[in-house]
Design a protein around this nucleic acid. Structure first.
Lengths: 238, 238
DNA sequence: TCAAAGGCAATTGCATGCACTTTTTGCCTC
DNA sequence: GAGGCAAAAAGTGCATGCAATTGCCTTTGA
């Protein structure tokens, strides 16, 4: 058993494993349906099977991993239908966050949202997709936090992370950034007005578009080969 | 190691432990802040510490248990604020379920909802609180299922179970049943009309009332003694 | 050639053991 | 009697080992 484990920082070994494996799933490095062999994972991360097992258990409780008793664990396979339900949930959750944000954000939160949003306009003009993506993530996080509701925050972040692999697989389309920005703008405007209803609606629409576009990602029974290849056009960024 | 383990049926030992411990938390048998000693639990259920540890890990991933590295696990302590956020989430989730139910329930689902709801009127007249509670639970479950969205269903059921200990602690108030039934009636009526907006609003209001009432359950830093004793009046059933 | 049966390798599930961390206890000092 | 320190006790974290289960592959019989 070599010296110190290298990967991932701090926390108990189990926590590290949860993060390590969870990240690999969320980022799409591990594919849905892929077998998660305890022994291999243990060897891969240079720990014993025990923490790996515990991590798999927790990931399974989170829905990222599927466990068949006595038959090992696989990366959770998300059916077309369940994917749709998650996107729909996401739209509803974002709508709630936006509505609450409109009603509850402090003035400094509002200011920060506005400032960041305006700053992101630059990324749109430059077509800097990577950078815009960063702003985009931050933008949505602000909405989640702005709702001032810890439990909704948890559910939203959780759902978003489970959708990450599907959102990530998006295409870079011309006009995508501008469109996304305009939708953000509608949300921001409504929030600044304190119009919860409008903010909610705008946020729901914003997410729904991605949902529809991603509906193409049929995941049915996901072979292990690279068949997840997006056979789709018309994907946008959230 | 005695013969077969008695408690709880089927599944792996870990699953059994998750259910066993989870139930005890949800039903309030284990109190928030209570220490969950691995060794004692293992002895109590006649298994080794390993499955107990895994179960605690999963329960912690579900938010029912809090784990302090190297310092053991306790039943999750829910702060006043977090409790409020969960009740608020619950109201929003129920609102979504009701709205979707109004838009999506099949005619047989609608019929069943209506029939059960009318049947529960009898319980109200008789003041049969226990029986009504059963109908009440079933009623809400129907809404969750009627939304036809697996992920929202999961989040709603999860949230509801985390709120269970607080809802359970309710008082039996005169007029509570009748009031609850009327609120259910508003929801049912809206759903039968297919009016999603009204159904959502009615459901949100229905839950909100409980939320306000339960706000009294300050849980702050929960001593180990039985100080959770409800120092409150005016609690209603969902 | 095919199907059923049996055995073998691989893998999971759980128990146990040991090292390390935290908490408690007992003793000493002030 | 209060405070502080150290040793002991308790309890957690992880590794390892073994029994049990599964899946595969070979064998056998028709």
């Amino acid at each position: 058993m070599s010296g110190k484990r290298s990967l991932i920082r701090s926390g108990t070994t189990v926590d590290q494993m949860v993060r390590a494996i969870g990240d690999r799933i969320v980022t799409g490095f591990l594919r849905p349906g892929e077998k998660l062999d305890e022994t291999s994972l243990a060897a891969r991360f240079d720990v014993s099977r025990t923490p790996v097992r515990e991590a798999l258990g927790q990931l399974s409780a989170m829905g990222l991993v599927e466990r068949r008793p006595n038959r090992g664990a696989i990366v959770a396979v998300v059916t077309q239908e369940h994917l749709a339900s998650m996107f729909e949930s996401m739209a509803e959750l974002e709508a709630i966050c936006a509505r609450f944000s409109a009603e509850r954000m402090t003035s400094s939160e509002r200011r920060a949202l506005e400032v960041e949003h305006q700053a992101s306009a630059r990324m749109v003009r430059l077509g800097a997709e990577e950078d815009y993506e960063y702003f985009n993530t931050e933008f949505h996080s602000r909405l989640y936090r702005g709702a001032h509701n810890a439990h909704i925050y948890e559910m939203t972040v959780m759902t978003r992370s489970r959708l990450a692999p599907f959102r990530r697989a998006q295409f870079m389309l011309p006009g995508r950034l501008a469109k996304s920005w305009q939708e953000h703008d509608a949300i921001v405007t409504a929030i600044m007005r304190g119009d919860g209803g409008a903010a909610g609606k705008a946020a729901r629409d914003h997410v729904s578009i991605v949902s529809e576009a991603s509906a193409v990602f049929a995941v049915g029974d996901q072979p292990k080969t690279a068949s997840t290849a997006p056979v789709t056009r018309r994907l946008r960024t959230t």
